[in-house]
């Protein structure tokens, strides 16, 4: 029974990691190419979830909702880039943080104004309902397996996009020297808008996928955003590979910590005390891991700006 539990928890950690990767990939791409800290990334995640829930409720199909979430997040991302973000590239990080924080407030209140404060209903598509048996006698929710699959597919897709296509070449060039590719005649403005919209679409996808699992509500993006920042700091800012490794580390450490710490502590103290202290320790575990990694590799595991 314990093996089954362990496998299930590892899968849970992987699923959380993959979801964080979808968020962190966009965040790290935007930072790597444009040098911009985008706090409003969590709002794009929320927009994806709201778009999916609304369209799924109107059409009855989760899949149309999923496409709508990609379109809505990418669209809002592109509008934000053109209207606001474009003016911030030459400013320092404090201005960027202030402006994108303002965007969080505007987008959250906007969503509240449009959809109200009560959570929306978004269900898992019928095809992915239920659980599948695991080796070792356990069971695992099919939808979470599907999220893991989507995450791996996105990781491969991003790798191919960046390593094999012309757009990817420009993104890599933009990461290493912004002025130079501008001087070589690449339309840097369009490139920035495309990268921003791509990052936004990934966040929207994550929001829609997770929205069906959790609850779709205003402010759902900010807790995830904090974890996504931890991921890119661990992985090395600007590195997609780092984002993937960092996301899986954070996902697995967080899940295993919540699961194992209380039981380990229970060996040395009364059960109810162990659960309280274990829960408290588990919630800070990923930050401890982040501090340890930064102590040995100050610019993260796979820093792009080495």
């Amino acid at each position: 029974m314990f093996t089954a539990l362990l496998i299930e928890q590892l899968l849970n950690g992987l699923q959380l990691g993959v979801m964080l990767f979808l968020m962190a990939a966009g965040l790290t791409l935007i930072f790597g190419v444009m040098g911009l800290i985008n706090l409003a990334h969590g709002s794009l995640y929320m927009i994806g979830a709201f778009a999916c829930a609304t369209v799924a409720a109107a059409t009855g199909s989760f899949w149309i909702g999923l496409i709508a979430s990609l379109a809505a997040a990418a669209g809002v991302g592109a509008i934000i880039e053109v209207a606001v973000i474009r003016r911030l590239y030459d400013r320092d990080h404090l201005d960027q943080v202030l402006a994108t924080f303002a965007l969080i407030l505007i987008l959250s209140e906007g969503a509240r104004w449009l959809f109200g404060s009560f959570p929306l209903y978004l269900d898992i598509p019928p095809m992915l309902q239920g659980a599948v048996p695991l080796p070792g006698g356990g069971q695992y929710q099919l939808y979470r397996l599907a999220i893991i699959g989507v995450g791996i597919a996105v990781a491969i897709g991003l790798y191919l996009l960046i390593a094999r296509t012309r757009l990817g070449m420009r993104i890599r060039a933009g990461e290493s020297d912004r002025e130079m590719i501008g001087a070589l005649g690449v339309d840097i403005g369009t490139l920035y808008t495309v990268v921003f919209a791509l990052g936004a679409a990934l966040a929207g996808l994550a929001g829609a996928l997770v929205g069906a699992l959790q609850s779709v509500q205003v402010g759902m993006g900010e807790p995830v955003l904090i974890l996504a920042f931890v991921v890119i700091v661990i992985g090395g800012i600007g590195s997609i590979k780092g984002a993937l490794v960092g996301a899986v580390i954070v996902g697995v450490v967080d899940t295993m910590g919540r699961f194992l710490l209380p039981s380990v502590l229970a060996l040395t103290m009364p059960a109810s005390q162990a659960t309280t202290i274990g829960a408290a320790l588990a919630s800070m575990l990923i930050y401890v891991v982040m501090a340890l990694i930064l102590a040995f590799r100050p610019s993260g595991l796979f820093s792009a700006q080495s």
Binding site: M1, E8, L16, Q141, Q214, R258, F259, T275
Partner: peptide
Amino acid sequence: IYTQVGQTDYAAEIAQIRA
């Protein structure tokens, strides 16, 4: 089990319930 306030993913807890 005590979970975090505002937690939205309960996969780890549900696995423990199952076991």
